[in-house]
Amino acid sequence: MNLKDISKQATAGTTTAGTISELKEIETKYLGRHGEFNQYFDQLPKEEKPKQGATFNLAKQKYSAEVQKKSDEIIGRESAREFDVTVPGILPSIGHLHLITGAIEEITGIFEKIGFIRRRYPEIDTDWYAAEGLNIPKDHPARDDQETFYVSDNVVLTPHTSNGQLREMEAMKKPPIKMINIGKTYRRQIDISHTPMFHQFEGLLIDKNIDITHLIGVGNYFVQHYFGRDRRIRLRPHHFQFTEPSFEIDITCGVCGGLDCRLCKAGWLELGGAGMVHPTVLKNGGIDPKKYSGFAFGWGVERVLAMKNNLPDIRNIYSTDLRILNQF
């Protein structure tokens, strides 16, 4: 093949190229290191080479220019082509953490920042840890509130995470104690705001000179980080056997900002119970109530979740329907 034929073929090839990658292929075929042009030149007798050099280079340059022109044309066409930028993407496989896991992790993070240690204590425990050691004697009317499941006379499914109080005191032996115990709890009831299994987070802080205002401080800190900077709590009198004094804790309503609305009572929503650890409970945990004092609170994970995300029916948190779970 002479130089003219090669040039002709190369030009013909270039005109048929539709895409940049096709063009690159053709360009390599002719202009590559072992391309048609170079092969032609290489097979020339040695004496011919200087004579044809100029023509050869010219042919290559000309062809190069054609390729460049074609390339510009293709790019021009490509960039002028209509393209629907609204076409949806193709999703990777997406998994979902459960709402409860998310809430537990968020709560843990908030309390860990101020030095509370995350704990988990038995869900099935003896009556001593779940009730009697918490100053709730066997036939006490306070047991009415607990709706406890029994495994045997002496072993129960913990109706609250407060069994962790005595267990933490025993494990630590000496204050300071600063735990956030999060776990599964069980009560014999099921309705729009109760499931037989639920989760609680139990804060316990015992040290010298711990007073009620510390509980208020920690409560405000929590609600401001979990619910929002403008939220705060208030304490109301209540009664629990294992705390003295005992409180019911309310939080300002997030919907009306504390004014009063359909969702709240005069601007307040109930968060849960709390109190100063009863001296009998401290004693039962091996801690001297004359030297140390402390506070404890036990709040529902589902409850704060429902309050934060406006979930109308708590039972839906335990739905196993992926059409619900995949929304989380």
């Binding site: 711990i210 208020i216 920690v218 304490l235």
Partner: peptide, 11 residues
Amino acid sequence: YFRLEGKLPVT
């Protein structure tokens, strides 16, 4: 109780 001011413990 609602008249008490909260403070964070240093423990």
